[in-house]
Write a protein that binds this DNA or RNA. Structure first.
Lengths: 129, 129
DNA sequence: CTGGACCTTCCAGTGCAGGGGAAGGTCAAG
DNA sequence: CTTGACCTTCCCCTGCACTGGAAGGTCCAG
């Protein structure tokens, strides 16, 4: 299978697949005599895994770690569990930060509900911020 | 006042102030005969405003828009209000996305609580993802 | 008059996940 | 035998807000 066909099947682009190969997410592809990349159909499952990892908020580098463990012959379950734990903690923190930011902005917005341009000195640029 | 002193007063770095000038957040500074930037003390208030804008989650480009309006002689109150509204909507959406992602990951993590490496086929790399 | 702290400009890189496009090779259909 | 779709490598660009470093100029104290 050539790169364009694989890309379409996996719902991505040829460009991205070459990038994945460069990043070590896909093993160097077999080549036809003329130099075209030639993929086994199973490669699509690997790309799907990459997409599942991305859907779980993992970076390509983290997904690569998992693949490396699997390619080394081991089951990556525990590493996956640790990554999920770490990601979960990060997300909780991001949510907390965004929630705090939302409250801050909501308050500023509330104060600016009836803007009174005359009460804003040029010095402070805008008294609602 | 030279750039280093202003940077310290405003809680930032000289490098950043040159960057702000380049980005149009600060007007081109006056120069001493020898070419050093020479700032009026009021410039610190402008930098403070930039910091308040950042604390509200605005980008430098958005902060610049506000400053441009003020520099044009108008009061930017209404624009600020619109920016705050837009930012608020973005943040709500980000929070919703992160919350959904958190739930997804929490479920995956739950399934991976007692990893069973033997049930993971190499094909799917990891059945918990 | 020398050393060190400060300043200048300019170039380049960071992280993330690709995208754009040039220059050229290959393959199948008409 | 040509056309058009596909493939190859290569390098640069995106957004965001800086940060690092090189090469050189300036200022002040000792």
């Amino acid at each position: 299978m050539r790169i364009g066909e694989l890309a379409e099947r996996a719902g991505t682009t040829a460009k991205t697949l070459r990038f994945y190969e460069e990043q070590g997410l896909l093993p160097p592809a077999e080549r036809t005599p003329s130099g075209y990349r030639d993929y086994a159909p199973e490669t699509a499952a690997r790309i799907d895994f990459v997409h599942r990892g991305q859907a779980a908020g993992l970076t390509l580098a983290q997904i690569r770690q998992i693949l490396d463990i699997r390619d080394g012959g081991a089951a990556p379950c525990e590493h996956v569990r640790d990554l999920l734990d770490a990601r979960l903690a990060e997300i909780e923190q991001q949510i907390a930060q965004l929630t705090a930011l939302r409250d801050t902005i909501a308050e500023l917005r509330h104060d600016a509900a009836q803007p009174d341009p005359d009460s804003c000195s040029a010095d402070q640029v805008c008294r609602y911020l």
